[in-house]
């Protein structure tokens, strides 16, 4: 007989693991990637690949030489950071800039706090916002989509949200804007490479819900808040404020709500807290979009609410028995 093993109960484990969840998220991101490749061609592949490789390398170097840990780059979290960072930048971004972004995302956004599980802010968004502030021109030069072209023409244009902002600041009524909801839904519009298609995002959302990787609370709370808050503004003055559906379908709302706000590490622990978190993001997004200087508010809203997570965890406890 072998020497018996003694351990405290429970003696069985559900078989869930960190990498299973992380790779699950990556699978959910595949539709968005396909859309990006369809509309932006080779650029999308290059940017994503550079970002992922850079994130992996930086994570490995920092873990090995600075933190003196055993590198755990294949747990999937660095890959997700890389993919999400790439999905949040234009597809024609110079590759060296994305490498800088990856360094900030992994180095400052994640490792400076002690690595996976310790960071306060979503690393990909830290990288993205850093790039947006440091390289505003490159970060807002958007490639115009061109379906099924491997090397699309270097035509650039404005995103739907930028058009909206321009109309808003110049005082033209927003109702005059031509909105093609079908294009927005499928992804045929300018924007960061991963955020263009609502359809792809919803497919990913459905997949993650079925696999129980995330719960519905945060994304639904964000959608509902944006819809309600944007809707109220729209009802008050339809010429000034655009329909809430437009808000939901443009910019990073889908990508942010489904993939970034639900990041395990930087989101609240209880369902109540998640809903508060989602409402906060929704309100902030609309406020920044309509009253702020930037046309797009999702990244900032998520980062701001990330800072509130410890507070939310403290005051919004799960429903006790």
């Amino acid at each position: 007989m072998n020497t018996l093993i003694i351990s405290p109960s429970p003696h069985i484990h559900g078989g869930d693991s960190i990498s299973k969840n992380m790779y699950g998220v990556l699978i959910a991101l595949i539709p968005a990637f396909i859309c990006a490749v369809i509309f932006f061609g080779l650029g999308a592949i290059l940017v994503t690949l550079t970002s992922v490789v850079a994130c992996l390398i930086f994570e490995y170097l920092i873990q090995k030489f600075l933190l003196k840990q055993t590198p755990t780059i294949w747990d999937g979290s660095a890959i997700i950071t890389g993919v999400l960072l790439a999905f949040n930048v234009p597809s024609n971004l110079p590759l060296w800039i994305i490498v800088v972004g990856a360094l900030v995302a992994i180095g400052i956004g994640k490792m400076s706090y002690g690595g996976l599980g310790c960071n306060v802010f979503n690393p990909a968004l830290v990288g993205r916002v850093f790039l947006l502030i440091s390289f505003p021109v490159q970060m807002t030069t958007w490639q115009l989509p061109e379906a099924f072209a491997l090397l699309p023409d270097a035509n650039t244009g404005a995103t739907p949200l930028a058009l909206l902002k321009e109309a808003f600041t110049s005082g033209r009524p927003v109702s005059e804007l031509a909105i093609n909801y079908k294009d927005l839904f499928l992804g045929n519009n300018a924007g960061s490479l991963g955020e263009i298609s609502v359809l792809a995002m919803l497919l990913g959302f459905a997949y993650m819900l079925i696999r129980k990787i995330i719960s519905w609370h945060i994304p639904i709370a964000i959608f509902a808040t944006i819809f309600v808050f944007g809707g109220i503004l729209h009802l008050i003055d339809p010429t000034h404020y655009i329909t809430p559906v437009f808000h939901l379908m443009t910019g990073g709302v889908m990508l942010g709500a489904i993939f970034m706000a639900t990041d395990y590490v930087t989101s609240p622990m209880s369902h109540k807290g998640m809903i508060i978190f989602g409402i906060g993001i929704g309100v902030l997004t609309v406020v920044i979009r309509i009253f702020g200087a930037y046309p797009e508010g999702m990244s900032f809203a998520i980062l701001i609410m990330n800072a509130f997570v410890p507070l939310i965890n403290r005051y919004f406890k799960p429903q006790r028995f």
Partner: peptide
């Protein structure tokens, strides 16, 4: 040793 501990 008569057994092996596997826990925290």
């Amino acid at each position: 040793h008569t057994n092996k501990y596997d826990g925290a």
